[in-house]
Design a protein around this nucleic acid. Structure first.
Lengths: 225, 225
DNA sequence: ATTTAAATATGATATTTGTCATGTTTTAAT
DNA sequence: ATTAAAACATGACAAATATCATATTTAAAT
């Protein structure tokens, strides 16, 4: 099993602020795990008791609303941490994490890392900055959900995915999502998401190769009303 | 001017985790300020360069969406801190703060308090817990915005305000909001908010005394679909 | 007290979005 | 390769919400 102190992934998250000693201690108790596409990493209401460091792959964080629909709140990719919030407040997760493709993660038990959070100010300040960023993004999502049309939200989601997670060599979005996933991101019915994407296709804003989506006119998408 | 180390308000926020020495130092550089109802405390994009500790009153945090509508993201009351996020990431505010009634606040310059955040792990862990809570609440708001009807969101907002900010002796909600404010909380047109409130009145769920709203049947509000 | 402006209220109508039905295509399993 | 299941697609219609118009009431200013 790899050693945390030598792991390049940590450069991308708050773990980089831990000392070599701290990392070596964590390395001893961490466990590595492979998660298959579609597998649930943790459920809503489940006690996580630690934090996941995503070494490879992507997962969605979603929450079931009372009417039975799933809402995707955030996506977490390679390099990021999963379960930070539960780590901090000690509560069970309020979100479900599901792998969107095959993933490789390291699990660090709460008991080990919480010490560092409470004693290493550099580390906790780093986590703090991470959360501040999350919170800002959440505010933006709230405003978009509340004030923009389904068309606009879907257009912006495509742009967000394009800019944040990148594209494959052929220009298609690197994250492969079902139409249902798109619907659950923008908070609409699956049929509505399908309809809007079809319209985008007709308007020449995107093209599709099977399930893959390629943005053809990003400026046009930005101008969607 | 009052001294931070003796201020009872600090019990309600993360400042309680500062040492007496730290509080005395902060006390020397803090400034007190009275803010009139309707006054803007800081605008979107403004550099705050510190945090506000709310000693009295309530304010709304809102963000202007591209279509020109204001979205209220959160309300901050007596005892809470304002501008934590900007404090942490050093960026200008992404939200506007507006007083909903007359307020009394203390302003603590960033330069003074950032040291404590980086050196007092107890304090930064406390702020961390605060932000984790905010983030969880934000997730809930996202799900509600995306998946629930205007009627449901408005009913839940009334319950939230009732449970979180309390009522006056006569049973009316202690926070006085305009119909436009309600619309900006649930993300709908002012006319729609008015219509829904009128319907709630007809259904006996609420009564109104002028602008004041009194919840008459909270269970009924919970059951709104 | 009177005037003026702002907030609240409601009707009529347009637009957006959801739901149900049904057909087609793609993917997965045998 | 064949079959079954899931995902995608689209039409028809219903429901929710926005927009515009116009009263009415309330609050603010003089």
């Amino acid at each position: 099993m790899g050693k945390c102190e030598q792991c390049i992934i940590k450069q991308f998250n708050s773990l980089k602020s831990l000392t070599t000693d701290e990392l070596m201690r964590i390395s001893k108790c961490k466990t590595s795990r492979i998660i298959k596409k579609g597998e649930v990493i943790f459920e809503e209401g489940e006690s996580i008791n630690g934090v996941y460091c995503v070494k490879d792959g992507i997962c969605k964080l979603s929450k079931l609303s009372e009417n039975g629909k799933d809402q995707i709140v955030k996506m977490v990719v390679k390099g990021q941490l999963l379960g930070q919030r539960s780590l901090i407040n000690g509560e069970s997760s309020n979100l479900q994490a599901t792998a969107l493709n095959d993933m490789e993660v390291c699990f660090i038990p709460r008991s080990e890392i919480i010490k560092d959070l409470q004693s290493n100010p550099k580390f906790s300040f780093d986590v703090l900055q991470d959360m501040a960023k999350d919170l800002k993004e959440a505010d933006d999502v709230i405003v978009n959900m509340a004030q923009k049309s389904v068309r606009q939200r879907l257009a912006e989601s495509l742009i967000y995915i394009h800019d944040t997670f990148g594209t494959n060599p052929d220009g298609t979005l690197s994250i492969l999502l079902s139409r249902e996933d798109f619907a659950n991101i923008v908070g609409t019915a699956t049929e509505s998401a399908i309809r809007v994407l079809s319209q985008f296709k007709k308007d020449g804003l995107i093209t599709t190769i099977g399930k893959q989506i390629k943005i053809e006119n990003i400026e046009g998408l930005r101008r969607v009303e």
